[in-house]
């Protein structure tokens, strides 16, 4: 009969949990850079996002849904029909951006461009990519926030309603974007 394995040392948890033992935790990295794709769905979200795009991120791509996406029919639109721009103003293709992404973050302040948001989310689902959504509520009236939240709810695995735009860098830093 197989004997129940015992800890190598008596009271191993007591010793292992000390500050002294913490010094021996292996120093090697335990993850690789993530591919984070952040999409600002409207002008307000884009303005909040552009305030932080120059920060030192780890491979995050910041993208804005450009004018022309209003009224996009998600049923009919293909992925690359969503007009996207990079911070330098150059265009980006949704299919390229989402391919290989680890997380898609949707930022919204107005509840507009719902069709574009749905197409982005659909593309992320196809790639089995996690979707987090951040509704920026600061300084906006309750109805506007409800509109944003209702638009984002069906799309995201995690939905955060934040009162301050400075939660954007806090969240992206925490997620190693």
């Amino acid at each position: 009969m197989l004997e129940t394995p015992r800890p190598t040392l008596l009271s191993s948890c007591a010793m292992a949990a000390t500050a002294a033992e913490a010094r021996f935790r292996v120093p090697y990295p335990n993850s690789r850079d993530r591919a984070s794709r952040i999409f600002a769905l409207d002008q307000g979200a884009a303005e909040a996002m552009y305030r932080i795009t120059e920060d030192p991120w780890h491979g995050a791509h910041f993208l804005t849904v450009a004018p022309g996406a209003e009224g996009l029919d998600p049923e009919a639109a293909k992925a690359d029909a969503v007009p996207l721009t990079k911070p330098d103003g150059s265009p980006a293709k949704l299919s390229d951006e989402v391919a290989g992404a680890d997380v898609v973050v949707l930022l919204a302040s107005a509840g507009t461009n719902e069709g574009a948001a749905e197409v982005i989310a659909r593309e992320a689902w196809k790639q089995h990519t996690m979707i987090a959504a951040l509704a920026l509520a600061g300084g906006r009236d309750g109805k506007a926030v409800d509109r944003v939240v209702n638009a984002l709810r069906p799309l995201a695995t995690v939905l955060v309603v934040a009162r301050d735009d400075d939660f954007i860098p806090a969240m992206l830093t925490a997620l190693r974007a």
């Binding site: 973050v105 806090a170 969240m171 925490a174 997620l175 190693r176």
Partner: peptide, 12 residues
């Protein structure tokens, strides 16, 4: 640590 998006309660 390597938080994921479902950890957003903790992050907030």
């Amino acid at each position: 640590e390597n938080l994921v998006s479902t950890d957003n309660g903790i992050i907030m």
